[in-house]
Computed example of a mutant assay.
Amino acid sequence: MEKLDPKRTVKPRKMPVQRRSAATVGFILDAAARILEERGLDGYTTNIIAERAGISIGTCYQYFASKEAITAALIARETEHLCHELDLARETRDWATGIRLAIAAAVTYQLKRPRLAQQLDLAEKILVLSEGQENVQKRAQDVIASLLARNDAYVAENVMLVSRDLVAIAHGMIDSAGRHGETNIDRLCQRVYCAISGYLDASKGIPAT
């Protein structure tokens, strides 16, 4: 099967205005999500997406020029709530509470539809997203960095390094939990926070770069 091409445009051809058009776009994105869950990126083409959505390939192309554009729109739709929750975590006055909220948002997103989340994560690493569509992992790093900056134990030079490590730790644990079929959100949140807390305690001695 043809792989995702990062050189192809990811912008939709037209934005749905009428209710019927919005419904058609919804059918396309729903179909794309189901195919990714069932077959992964290797079984993923515009023809298959259109067939699953119950529309003609011509109708599909009216809204999206490529499967890359469909995928980018799906990433935006599926991660919208996660990004909102991350932004709320950033605004939390207490930095530790903010980190807990960010962990809960990430765990909830991943375990809701783990196979889809994994495939979209892979796709996001390949595609060059549209202007204004921020990479979710980069957004998470910025949120954690903003929270850590309120903690005097971390010098400014180390904040981005530590936040990158924390996101990598959390991402690895959460992704693994999804792959192994875990469903207990509270337990996973606690485990991730324990791992992050251990790193934070040990990282206070890291010299500034």
Rank of each mutant, 00 (worst) to 15 (best):
Leu88Phe: 09
Ile75Gln: 01
Thr79Asp: 11
Glu85Met: 05
Phe64Gln: 04
Gly98Thr: 11
Arg139Ile: 07
Val107Ala: 14
Leu116Lys: 01
Ala69Leu: 08
Asp142Pro: 11
Glu91Asn: 09
Ile99Asp: 09
Thr92Ala: 09
Arg113Gly: 10
Ile75Gly: 11
Cys83Thr: 10
Gly132Asp: 02
Glu80Thr: 05
Ala105Leu: 12
Ala123Asn: 00
Ala72His: 01
Lys125Ala: 13
Arg113Pro: 09
Arg100Tyr: 00
Ile99Trp: 03
Phe64Glu: 07
Ala76Val: 09
Ser130Met: 05
Arg115Asn: 11
Asp87Ser: 11
Asp142Arg: 03
Ala65Gly: 15
Leu129Met: 01
Arg139Ala: 09
Ala72Asp: 04
Ile75Arg: 00
Tyr63His: 05
Leu120Pro: 15
Ala102Tyr: 02
Asp142Gly: 13
Glu134Ile: 14
Arg113Tyr: 02
Ala106Phe: 04
Gln62Tyr: 03
Asp142Thr: 11
Tyr63Leu: 08
Phe64Lys: 04
Asn135Gln: 04
Glu80Met: 05
Leu82Ala: 12
Arg115Asp: 15
Arg113Thr: 15
Tyr109Lys: 13
Ala123Tyr: 04
Ile75Glu: 11
Glu131Pro: 06
Val143His: 06
Thr71Cys: 14
Cys83Arg: 04
Ala89Tyr: 03
Leu122Phe: 02
Ile70Gln: 01
Ser146Tyr: 05
Asp142Cys: 13
Glu78Lys: 03
Ala145Ser: 14
Gln137Pro: 07
Asp142Asn: 08
Ala117Leu: 06
Ala106Trp: 01
Val107Gly: 08
Asp121Leu: 09
Ser66Leu: 09
Gln141Cys: 14
Ala89Pro: 07
Glu91Thr: 14
Ala106Ile: 04
Lys125Trp: 01
Glu134Gly: 11
Thr108Val: 12
Ala123Val: 08
Glu124Asp: 13
Asp121Val: 02
His81Met: 13
Val136Lys: 00
Thr71Ile: 06
Ala140Gln: 06
Ala73Met: 01
Ile75Pro: 13
Ser146Phe: 08
Ile70Arg: 02
Ala117Asp: 08
Gly132Leu: 03
Arg139Gly: 15
Gln118Ala: 13
Lys138Arg: 01
Gly98His: 02
Thr108Gln: 12
Arg113Ala: 15
Leu74Thr: 07
Ala76Leu: 05
Leu111Ile: 11
Ser66Asn: 06
Gln118Leu: 08
Val143Thr: 11
Gln119Met: 00
Glu68Ile: 03
Ala145Leu: 03
Ser146Gln: 12
Ala140Trp: 04
Arg113Lys: 00
Leu74Arg: 01
Ala123Asp: 03
Val143Met: 05
Arg113Met: 08
Thr97Tyr: 05
Glu134Tyr: 06
Ile103Pro: 06
Cys83Tyr: 03
Leu127Val: 03
Arg139Asp: 13
Arg93Trp: 02
Thr108Glu: 13
Gly98Val: 08
Glu91His: 10
Glu80His: 00
Leu116Asp: 08
Thr97Phe: 04
Lys67Ile: 07
Cys83Gly: 08
Gln118Glu: 10
Trp95Phe: 09
Lys138Tyr: 01
Asn135His: 03
Glu80Phe: 02
Thr79Ile: 08
Leu120Phe: 00
Tyr63Ile: 07
Trp95Gly: 06
Lys67Cys: 11
Ala145Val: 04
Gln141Asn: 11
Glu124Gly: 15
Ile70His: 03
Lys125Gln: 10
Tyr109Val: 12
Ile99Lys: 00
Ala106Asn: 02
Leu122Thr: 11
